[in-house]
């Protein structure tokens, strides 16, 4: 791992398009700004790791997945009902 020392306001450039800036240091917290093309995904490591773990737990062989799709609930002419009422006209919920 490359280790660099930076002060607040100073940056690190990764490749040609990504700049990481230390914005603020306060006790045991560091605020970081990332300037990158919008198509580059940026996640907190723990959030990304959760998805990695979930994917690892969900992945199975193609044969096993096919079997599940064939035998699981909803197969054999009993798909779960589709929602009866379109919800597009509902105002979006508050975030």
């Amino acid at each position: 791992m490359l280790v660099l020392t930076r002060r607040p306001g100073e940056s690190v450039v990764v490749g040609h398009e990504v700049t990481i800036t230390v914005l603020e240091v306060r006790q045991d917290q560091v605020r970081i700004g990332v300037d990158a093309p919008r198509s580059v995904t940026i996640h907190r490591q723990e959030v990304y790791d959760q998805i990695v773990r979930e994917n690892a737990g969900a992945v199975t062989s193609a044969d096993a997945a096919r079997k599940l799709a064939e035998q699981g609930p909803g197969a054999g002419g009993r798909p779960p009902p589709r929602p009866g009422t379109p919800r597009g006209d509902k105002p979006p919920p508050d975030q």
């Binding site: 992945v59 199975t60 599940l68 799709a69 699981g72 609930p73 909803g74 197969a75 798909p79």
Partner: peptide, 20 residues
């Protein structure tokens, strides 16, 4: 399965990688 609510998303690059 035509009537199933579930499908398979299968990797073409890694063997044994598929998701329901």
């Amino acid at each position: 399965h035509a009537e199933s609510a579930f499908q398979v998303l299968e990797s073409l690059d890694e063997d044994g990688v598929a998701l329901l």
